[in-house]
Design a protein around this nucleic acid. Structure first.
Lengths: 192, 192
DNA sequence: GTCACTTCCTAAATGCGTTAGGCATATGCA
DNA sequence: TGCATATGCCTAACGCATTTAGGAAGTGAC
């Protein structure tokens, strides 16, 4: 009987593909084993357990998204950068819904620190260099941007915009416009 | 042997409580059965299967949130209404994290229509009556508000703000301020 | 070719979801 | 009050998933 040539990396990649096809919560040892035509127990040489498998898929997704985001951000600033970052995440989520979901998995503190998570945080902060914002407001703005991106993408992915007009692309563009305006005219403690 | 007096409603309520304690994905027939000190099979008289149980918890959460939101919105308009609605959702999520998660469960079209989902949509739309927005922009704004609320709450619940300053309450207030300003000065097709 | 290593296997324990069918308890009717 | 009926909860059993232990067979270095 010929070997399948499994490695931790191949198992993880398969997990990511299956997440996109079947949904992240369907990513289990048994599904991955079937995908390779292999006995379930064989996976446990490459992955500690089901949770470990899911965490690895999450880390892969975080890395992929960070790489794409970094490439998209290169040479851009201000509104361009904002649109580039948001659209990178959104496109990634539409291409790879399972991986995007995986990237939201709660990681323990140590794993989170070693992940691409901090790169994402840094990139959102970097965008704000194009806008004049000083410290407490900068953090508030980072959180707003993250909320809008993640909120919109989650709702779109979840089908919230499926049965209504106008299409999600149009709203996305107008929301980015609005966000840009807001960041350029960020209200100070007492708003106008 | 004395009876437990199970009903579909009691099972659903227990599911909701267990969701808050253990996480929504831990809400299964076996956990609920243990909670009542009852055999697993006994649940199947009250609930069709595991998915049905989860859907019922989701519907309960949607109703509870809609009721709270309606109460909070009564007699308020404009910025007050915006803050009241957002804070209702946020407080509910902090009090009942499992139920809030449940409320995000994807429902099939018919179930969604019969749920409290449409009430939530109507309430967000109602808030915009306090702002001067006409039709395509109104929908964009509804989606933005939903994205910010859900995005922020999800990230806060997921612990994204746990290890950084300033606290989530401060950011929340400033983000609501910013959102209010944005809705009052919504940029038209060509932004300033 | 042999040795060591690794990959993949079989076997088995445990637990969950689900269905089928049975006993016993609470409730409605005389 | 006594009985019939509906139903609340049970036991039993099946299939499938996760996980561990230990064994067999490919693979590569010498």
């Amino acid at each position: 009987m010929t070997r399948m040539g499994l490695t931790t990396e191949r198992v993880t990649r398969a997990g990511a593909e299956l997440a996109d096809e079947l949904g992240f919560d369907q990513v289990t040892p048994s599904v991955v084993a079937r995908h390779f035509g292999v006995q379930v127990a064989s996976l446990y040489s490459h992955v500690r357990n089901a949770q470990d498998l899911r965490v690895r898929v999450a880390l892969l997704a975080l890395e992929e998204m960070a790489d794409r985001a970094a490439a998209a951000l290169a040479g851009r600033a201000g509104r361009d950068a904002l649109v580039a970052l948001g659209t990178t995440y959104r496109d990634y989520a539409r291409e790879h819904p399972g991986r995007y979901t995986a990237a939201q998995l709660r990681l323990d503190h140590a794993t989170a620190l070693a992940s691409a998570g901090p790169r994402h945080a840094a990139m959102t902060r970097a965008i704000l260099r194009g806008y004049q914002l000083t410290e407490p407001d900068q953090t508030h703005a980072v959180r707003l941007i993250g909320s809008v991106f993640h909120g919109y993408i989650t709702q779109e992915l979840g089908g919230s915009y499926d049965h209504s007009q106008p299409g999600p692309q149009e709203s996305w563009e107008r929301i980015l416009d609005a966000l840009d305006v807001l960041l350029r005219h960020w209200p100070h403690e007492g708003q106008p």
